[in-house]
Design a binder for these strands. Structure first.
Lengths: 108, 108
DNA sequence: CTTGGTACTTTGTTTGACATAGTACTAAAA
DNA sequence: TTTTAGTACTATGTCAAACAAAGTACCAAG
């Protein structure tokens, strides 16, 4: 096992939070979100991101609109719903508590 | 979806790190590790912890010795191997980088 | 009208946590 | 002695979700 694998494992647990955080900045489409995660060294592949967005949309956290593109097929621009915004706040709190919990194991 | 579920998801990605951190303090057996994780609000169930320890032992990160108990069957006391200690250091670094990465998504 | 690039979709595989039941050992109660 | 309760470890099956890979659709440039 390499540590690359370890980061992949860690990533899994917070993918939703990460995607929501990106969308918290404003609407975006899949490739844009993917790009933002890549910038943060939290790369995910298509086969993960698209189903994730669909799940979150079905859960009522996101909604989308189609927008034409000059360089290819139309894009689905996602944005947070009110419900999604509330969830994001809750997940942010969870994340902080979680990080503290893991860090508390470090010593002693 | 409740946020309790969210924490469960987050937990999954770092279970190995958490178990290794507990063992970094000194040898321990399954119930002791479970107790330590519970203290940190990172509870895992038997069906998760035992297979995890076995996987890590098979990977060469842990070894164990049997010790008799006055109140029940003998216990497997696990401890880090040299390989496990090196991995723990690497995972600690990964963890820090990972937390930074997720936090970098928070604003802008 | 074919080629290349982009965007989204679909299907199958794999991994690992979890639930549950089962085995084994000890000590104390009936 | 036999039964019961508590503790520790093991084994089996299920499920969710990330991932891999192939497919569909749209556009523009050659």
């Amino acid at each position: 096992m390499n540590t690359e694998n370890a980061r992949a494992q860690m990533r899994k647990g917070v993918l939703e939070l990460c995607a929501l955080r990106v969308l918290g900045r404003g609407e975006a489409y899949a490739s844009g979100i993917s790009e933002a995660l890549k910038q943060a060294d939290l790369l995910v592949v298509e086969g993960t991101l698209y189903p994730l967005l669909t799940r979150m949309k079905n859960a009522g956290w996101l909604e989308y609109r189609w927008e034409e593109s000059k360089s290819g097929p139309p894009r689905k621009y996602y944005q947070l719903t009110e419900k999604g915004r509330i969830l994001l706040e809750a997940l942010n709190s969870e994340w902080t508590a979680f990080v503290d919990a893991v860090n508390s194991l470090k010593n002693s």
